Computed example of a mutant assay.
Amino acid sequence: MASSTDLTVRADAPSAALQGALRLPHVPDWRRLLPGLALSAALAGAGMALGRIEWLAAHGLSALTLAIVLGMLVGNTVYPRLAATSGPGVTVSKQNLLRLGIILYGLRLTVQDIGHVGLAGVVVDALVLGSTFLLACWVGTRWLGLDRHSAMMIGAGSAICGAAAVMAAEPVVKARAEQVTVAVATVVVFGTLSIFLYPVLFDLNQHWGVIGGGARGFGLYAGSTIHEVAQVVAAARSISPEAADTAVIAKMVRVMMLAPFLLLLSGWLARDAARPAGPRAPGKGAKAKITVPWFAFGFVAVVLLNSLQWLPASATAAATGIDTGLLAMAMAALGLSTHFSAIRKAGAKPLLLALILFAWLLAGGALINHWVPLLLG
C-alpha cells in the first residue's frame, strides 16, 4: 500500500510539471509576488516618466535604459533589506514578464517593413548581424579570454537591437544577471556615442562617398549599425527626415531578425553541449537538448498579426504602451538583481570587446552598406 507521502508526491506531480512547462516559480501564495512586482513597477514607471524628458530622449536614453539604471541604484542601496519579501516578484518580472514583453514587441513591426528597404536592406541587416555576433564570440573568447556567456550577451546587444536583444537572449544563453547588465551598459555607452558621431560621419561621407544613396542610403547604414531603436531615431533625425525614415525601417527589419537568431543560437548551444570533452565509449554519445525559445514564436506570430492590420490603431498603441511597461519592469528587476561589485569584477575586457564591435559596426558596416547595394543593383 502506498504511504501518505507517496500519495502526496503523486498528487503534486502534475502541478509541478505544469509549473515547469510554464517556467513559473513555485509560489504557494500569489500574494508573495506583490511586493516585488510593485517595486519593479514603481521603478519602471519612474524610468518611463524620465524617458519622456526631451533632453534625455534626444540623447537616446530610453525608458528601458533608465529603468535598469534606477534598478541598479536601488539594488545596491536599500534593496538588500527588501530582498527577502520582494525576491519572488522581482524574479517573475525579469523572467516571465520579460518573455511577454518580447512577444508584444512584435506590435512595433510589420512584414511590410521589409518591402520598404528592399532586398539590399535585408541582406545588409543580415550580414551586419551575423558578422558582428560571430566576431563577438571569436574575439571575446579567443583574444580577450572572456567567458562565452558574456561575449554572447555583448554580441547580441551590438548585433541586433541593444538592451531588448540582450534580455531576449538571456533565457537561451542562461547568463548571470551581472553579465546581462554589463552587456546592457556597453549598449548605452557606445549607442549614445553613435548619436553624436553619425551626423559627423554623414558630413564626411558627403565628401568621401563611401556610402551611396544620399540621406536615404546613409539612413540604411545608421539603421543597420546603431544599437538601440531610440539611438537610431536620435542620430538619424539629426541628419534629415529622409535619413530618419529609412533608418527606422532598417532598424525594424533588424529587430525582426531577433526570432530566427534566437532559434539558431539555441541550436548552436545545444550542439556544443552535446560535443564530447574527451574520448568516449562507442554508443555513449550525448544527446543535444535544444532550449526552444517559445516566446520567439510568439513574437513572430504577433508580427504577422500586426501585418494584417486587423487591430485598431488605438488598441495597438495601448498594447505597445503596456509592452514598454513590461520590458521596463524586466529591466528594473534586472537592475535590482545586479551588484556593482560583480560589474567591477568583470573588469575592462567587456568594454574593450564592445569597443571592437563598435569599430566593426562603423567600418565593416560601411563596407557592407557600400558593396551590397552595388552588387544587388
Rank of each mutant, 00 (worst) to 15 (best):
S4Y: 01
V9T: 10
S15P: 00
A16N: 12
Q19M: 10
G20L: 06
H26C: 03
L33Q: 07
L34H: 02
P35I: 01
G47V: 06
M48V: 04
L50M: 15
I53S: 02
H59C: 00
L61N: 02
A63P: 09
T65R: 01
M72G: 11
T77Y: 15
Q95Y: 03
R99S: 07
R99A: 06
G106P: 08
G106R: 07
L107H: 07
R108I: 00
R108F: 04
L109E: 06
V111E: 01
H116I: 00
H116F: 12
A120F: 03
V123E: 12
D125H: 04
S131C: 10
F133K: 01
A136C: 09
V139D: 05
W143R: 13
L144G: 03
M153H: 10
S158P: 07
S158A: 14
E170C: 00
V173I: 14
T181R: 07
T181L: 13
V182T: 10
G191H: 02
F202A: 10
N205S: 02
N205D: 12
H207R: 15
R216S: 06
R216W: 00
F218L: 13
L220R: 13
S224P: 02
V232N: 13
R237A: 09
E242L: 08
A244T: 10
D245V: 05
T246P: 00
A250R: 04
M256F: 09
M256K: 09
M257G: 15
L258Y: 13
A259G: 09
L269S: 11
K287E: 13
K289I: 12
V292D: 04
V292H: 01
A296T: 04
F299P: 05
A301Y: 06
A301T: 10
L304R: 03
L305R: 03
L305D: 11
L308T: 07
W310Q: 05
P312E: 06
S314Q: 15
T316R: 14
I343K: 08
A346I: 03
G347D: 05
K349I: 00
I356V: 15
L357S: 03
L361H: 03
A366L: 06
P373I: 08
